[in-house]
């Protein structure tokens, strides 16, 4: 069985930052492996270690700079990586779900995986939609927000748990091939070992343009436009205790005692 994992590089923002137009200025942004994808990679690598998967391939839509993040996925155990980028993607603020779907679909057509694992969402633009959209476009089955996957996939069915709201989980069976969107907490993502990091440098990482995978560059011109970005107005009317830790702890202790905490 072959597993394809979608891996995104996301931007995290410093506590203090400035907005420039519809973007956060570069110096306040840090590149990171998307947290949800980290769990998806781990799940795929565990399936490989368990003898269920023969090959784990990652796919990323991202510029050359994202290769450092992609190497992290390889260092954690993925076998090889595909990176799709194109000059038509440069400077696009917000790539819509339809464009991501078309690009990933073309890669799936070349790779023909049995199972696709995708993070529930990205930490920056938080669409939460690409995995299910991809499944539908491929005529694959799918399951969203999976926090447990039974690794016995041999009869062509995946037994999963979906994390619903309020501490309730849904148990369901999904026919393969399928896309599962992976929730945090499904496993404990490993840290890459030094050996893994060394090996990752030698693993194949293929860069492809939209033309290479047969996708028309027009797909990038989505129907969405980011028109404004601003810091939400703080609604805080909290009483802020100031001073040394002893002083602030003293204020808090006094409030707690007034509420009847005497322990």
């Amino acid at each position: 069985m072959k597993i394809l994992v979608t891996v995104a590089e996301v931007a995290t923002v410093d506590d203090e930052f400035e907005i420039d137009g519809t973007e956060i200025a570069d110096q306040y942004l840090n590149a990171d492996l998307n947290e949800w994808d980290d769990y998806a990679i781990e799940e795929a690598v565990q399936l490989q270690e368990g003898g269920v998967a023969d090959e784990v391939v990652t796919v990323t839509i991202g510029p050359e700079e994202s290769e450092q993040t992609i190497r992290q996925a390889l260092a954690k155990g993925a076998d090889r990586a595909i990176r799709v980028w194109d000059e038509s993607l440069e400077g696009v603020d917000l790539l819509d779900v339809r464009a991501k779907t078309e690009i990933l679909k073309a890669v799936v057509a070349e790779e023909e995986p049995d199972l696709i694992l995708s993070g529930v969402q990205t930490g920056d633009d938080s669409w939460m939609a690409t995995g299910v959209s991809l499944a539908e476009s491929l005529d694959f089955q799918w399951s969203a927000v999976v926090n447990d996957l039974d690794h016995d996939l041999e009869d062509g069915t995946a037994s999963v748990r979906r994390e619903l709201e309020g501490g309730v989980e849904e148990l369901s069976e999904v026919d393969l091939p399928a896309v599962l969107t992976i929730q945090t907490g499904i496993n404990e993502p490993r840290y890459a070992s030094l050996r893994g990091i060394r090996q990752a440098q030698r693993k194949p990482l293929d860069a492809k343009t939209l033309d290479d995978i047969g996708v028309d560059a027009g797909v990038v011109d989505g129907s969405l436009e980011l028109t404004d970005m601003y810091e939400p107005e703080s609604e805080s009317d909290a009483t802020v205790w100031e001073g040394s830790a002893e002083e602030t702890a003293g204020e808090l202790a006094e409030m707690l005692r007034e509420k009847g905490v005497t322990a």
Binding site: V97, R98, T101, V120, M128, A129, T130, G131, V132, S133, A135, E136, S137, W142, S143, A144, V145, R162
Partner: peptide
């Protein structure tokens, strides 16, 4: 989130 993206697609 388990059906909306598929409906849109």
């Amino acid at each position: 989130l388990d059906y909306a993206p598929a409906v849109a697609g």
